[in-house]
Design a protein around this nucleic acid. Structure first.
Lengths: 121, 121
DNA sequence: GTAGAATCTGACATCAGTGTCAGCTTCAAG
DNA sequence: CTTGAAGCTGACACTGATGTCAGATTCTAC
């Protein structure tokens, strides 16, 4: 599959897909003329990458995690090192914190919205 | 209270406090010599600002919301306009989406961690 | 073979909050 | 008064994923 189709199917821009390759997150074969040729699994991989970006991880960390993830083909190709596990645990804690903060922020917004819709008598 | 104390009490850098003022988020009196003098309520206000930043709102939006928030003194000084309510509702939806995404990302991390700690037989 | 769509590389811009530094002024304690 | 800590302004850097553009090349359908 060429880059245009992958972009269309994942909703990720071609620019970003090339960036992912540059960061070592997403490999691609090349046609004789040099154009990228992605395997079918790239779709899931890109989606995984986006999930991790959405979680606030940077590309370096994502590059470490990806080989340890179970993908469409089955088990992970690498096992996480103790250090990576520690890092990931820290990230998970950070996400937990972020979710609590977001819940709080949501409540703040909600209060403003409610107050505006149903003003004090 | 001067800027150093406010920074210490809120955990926000002096640089950021000055930036908040520049963005119209945080007013301060000035001493005869020109130094900022914050009221006690500024502490809560800064915390509110941080909450909203953490929720992904930018300073423009925060500037719109702040006057509509209930602060230490009681009721909001302004009522949210219909447009602001619509904006805030959209933000709230965005936060909801983000929380779902984070929950998903958390599960992804958790899977990697679990797989590493307790490998398949 | 040729036209047009798709892809390539490389470079520069953006956003927005924050860090940091320089040079100067003000404040407070002795 | 003096001295050192704290504050002020203004400027520049950074981060890091993504947008965008230019100019060249490749692919695909006719």
């Amino acid at each position: 599959m060429k880059i245009g189709e992958l972009a269309r199917r994942t909703g990720v821009s071609e620019r970003s897909l090339r960036y992912y390759e540059q960061q070592g997150l997403l490999a691609a074969d090349r046609s004789p003329g040099g154009q990228r040729d992605y395997p079918e699994r790239a779709v899931d991989r890109v989606i995984h990458i986006q999930e991790l970006f959405a979680a606030g991880l940077n590309s370096r960390k994502i590059a470490e995690i990806l080989p340890c993830m179970r993908d469409a083909d089955g088990g992970p190709s690498e096992k996480a090192t103790p250090k990576l596990v520690a890092d990931l645990t820290a990230e998970r804690d950070r996400i937990d914190r972020m979710m609590r903060d977001l819940a709080n922020s949501r409540a703040v917004l909600d209060e403003v919205i409610t107050a505006a819709v149903q003003p004090r008598p």
